[in-house]
């Protein structure tokens, strides 16, 4: 039954559909990343590994 349905479902366009979804999502992500976010937020996120966690003991004590 499932096989019959699938075989007559016109799956030729299935893969193309996936690509269209990808292109749309990719366009949204690009637009948002480059035009939709504030600079100060980006700066804060870029620094996150440096700001989080304890003060670095290697710099202060062991280096």
């Amino acid at each position: 039954m499932i096989r019959d349905v699938m075989q007559t479902a016109g799956l030729e366009g299935f893969a193309e559909f996936g690509i269209v979804v990808f292109v749309l999502a990719f366009a949204m992500i690009l637009t948002n990343a480059f035009f939709g976010m504030k600079k100060d937020e980006f700066e804060r996120m870029r620094h996150m590994p440096l700001d989080g966690g304890e003060s670095d003991p290697v710099d202060s004590e062991y280096a």
Binding site: F26, I29, R46, P49
Partner: peptide, 28 residues
């Protein structure tokens, strides 16, 4: 993305690029 900035004591080069990098990589 975590240890390179730590070792270089520099923030990651581009956070915008990291967003594009992540989504396109996991999808493709």
């Amino acid at each position: 993305y975590y240890f390179m900035p730590k070792a270089a004591e520099r923030p990651v080069f581009s956070y915008k690029l990291s967003i594009v990098h992540f989504w396109s990589l996991v999808f493709i």
